[in-house]
């Protein structure tokens, strides 16, 4: 193993991490808002809204992300004069905006179904209780429905976050030099595919490891009712010393 090469690979690839995180964070944040909107459309009981959301989810989950990226970045170039007239060309000209746009639309479709599942899992009794207390619709949603739904949806949403971290690699195909883009260039220059792959893979695994841990921590914090209650009586009846293994 050539440690010097591995280290120089690492210092090269790590420069792509800020872009990777930017792409993932931006599209996840905007996508989550959009997904919540789609999920409420699905649950609205208004047929038109439900069908629109269903159609959207069907299209974006049924086609590869790379096709969506190409459709937006290269495809919309076909309508350049029209987009220029509309004053939108500055947006669709930039690979970064196009990548964020495509990733956002894509994650929204997947997250919408996750959120819908979460919202459906809110027990009816809880909502009735909130109504009985005289909470307004907005307050009920904010205080009761949303927290419970988030807790239910969190594990699945954690998977979606990891998928998005991986999906940012596709931005390299439209010239954005994030970690995979830099790795590709480095492999083409050095022809040392295995070493570069190991370093790049380790970077992604580390990011995803941190994401998994963070999700587990949030899950733990959001479910105090499922934990062992802090033993209030502990000070009152101290364990015998030998039981603590002292």
């Amino acid at each position: 193993m050539d440690l010097a090469f591995l280290w120089s690979t690492f210092t090269t690839l790590i420069e792509g991490v800020p872009l990777l995180l930017e792409l993932a964070a931006l599209s996840l944040a905007i996508g989550a808002v959009f997904a919540l909107l789609l999920a409420t459309m699905r649950l609205s009981n208004v047929a038109v809204l439900d069908w629109t959301a269903q159609g959207y989810i069907f299209v974006f989950r049924g086609t590869p992300l790379l096709v969506q990226i190409f459709l937006i970045y290269y495809g919309l170039g076909q309508f350049r004069p029209a987009l220029q007239d509309l004053g939108l060309w500055w947006f669709f000209r930039e690979p970064f905006y196009c990548a964020v746009f495509a990733l956002t639309l894509n994650t929204a479709a997947y997250a919408a179904e996750i959120f819908r599942g979460g919202l459906l899992s809110v027990p009816h009794g809880q909502i009735e209780a909130a109504k009985a207390c005289g909470m307004s619709r907005a307050m009920r949603f904010r205080r009761i429905t949303l927290p419970i739904a988030i807790r239910q949806a969190l594990p699945a949403y954690g998977n979606e976050i990891i998928l998005m971290v991986k999906a940012t690699s596709l931005a390299s195909v439209i010239t954005l030099m994030e970690v995979t883009g830099l790795a590709h260039r480095l492999i083409a220059q050095s022809f040392r595919a295995v070493e570069v792959f190991v370093v790049a893979g380790a970077i992604y695994l580390f990011i995803n490891f941190v994401v998994t841990r963070a999700i587990l921590m949030i899950e733990w914090r959001l479910s105090p009712h499922l934990r062992q209650p802090p033993t209030a009586e502990a000070p009152m009846k101290p364990e015998p010393a030998h039981a603590r293994g002292a």
Partner: peptide, 22 residues
Amino acid sequence: TTVLRGIPDLLVIYLFYFGGSL
């Protein structure tokens, strides 16, 4: 299963393409 589900598919494709040819 942990590694292959945690890294981008594109990276695996590059590994196979360049590594395999090499």
